[in-house]
Design a protein around this nucleic acid. Structure first.
Lengths: 168, 168
DNA sequence: ATTAATTTTCAAAAAGTTTTGAAAATTCAA
DNA sequence: TTGAATTTTCAAAACTTTTTGAAAATTAAT
């Protein structure tokens, strides 16, 4: 397969993959394009490659920067701004995990904490099931939270690597 | 907080949480309702509790069954069908992981495999960056894949439990 | 077999999300 | 400063997804 075709396929499926996980398709596509671009690119480059509007590029680049996945790059002598993405996939993954944990997991765990001390008689089976379910999720979430913290802190892949050898 | 209010909050935030992960809000809400319901419920119960249409309940229940998260229950002497959800959160999580792996991760890894043997000179920096990025993602995905398989196979939580004690 | 209860389907409507593009704001070179 | 290049904003349009609800299909009791 030719590079042009392979790039197209990669960008398109990274976009589709993203949408399955609640990520805007264009945002994922821009991310894909930047990850396979050896050098920093401009907003116009992205507009051309993906055939999308300037506003769309601008907003999604902003989001990618907020997610910590893309950086603005100043190239001396160039008028335009350039953009580049982290290419080490381990770093990309830990960054995404860190952000999603902060944005979604942490607030959910906080809420579950509050919901757990609902009023009412624990002998009422409705109250009992509610408390059991909520506390089960909270405990599980707390464990996941700790595990993710460990993964995110580990600079290298040795942890998962050794784990997998052990269990292969 | 009263149970009625706590239930409302739980259902509503489980729905919102779901949408952030590409899950239909109503599907997540029905799942939430079933997880906190001590006894099996009917489609009409769900319509009333969530104020949604019969069609909506029916389609989303079907999806939940396909995801392996909800079961149809026949109650002797009852005309209507009843539904119930798995309440052990560890089982719920492994089931979700299993399905998402099958639906999303596996096909993506298959595609990356193909894309990796793109034509062209590896000394061309565009080809090189493409191959490096794709193979990096493929390797990482393969590792994640193996790790998830291990988690899903473990019937009990001893694995993660002991891991966390080790790292606490 | 008939019929009433229940479930399923799916086209159309509603709701939600994303994208566009032109105007406003900003930046930088002369 | 001035003005051309570039970036940002955001209301409206396009697109996508979800929901409704009534008709069709199915089920089970008589």
């Amino acid at each position: 397969m030719k590079l042009t075709e392979a790039k197209k396929q990669f960008i398109s499926s990274w976009g589709a993959f993203g949408t399955h996980w609640g990520i805007n398709k264009t945002m994922a596509q821009i991310h894909a394009l930047l990850m396979i671009s050896p050098d920093p690119v401009t907003q116009d480059d992205i507009m051309d490659e993906l055939s999308i509007s300037r506003g769309n590029v601008n907003m999604n680049i902003r989001d990618l920067i907020n997610w910590g996945l893309v950086d603005r790059v100043i190239i001396p002598g160039e008028r335009k701004e350039f953009f580049t993405a982290e290419k080490d996939i381990w770093k990309v993954a830990t960054q995404i995990i860190k952000e999603r944990k902060k944005r979604e997991l942490d607030p959910m765990l906080k809420l579950l904490d509050q919901l757990e001390d609902v009023d009412g008689d624990k002998k009422d089976k409705n109250v009992k099931q509610f408390v059991d379910t909520v506390s089960g999720i909270r405990k599980f979430g707390g464990q996941a939270d700790k595990m993710l913290q460990v993964m995110v802190k580990a600079d290298e892949n040795w942890f998962v690597g050794s784990l997998l050898k052990f269990f292969k």
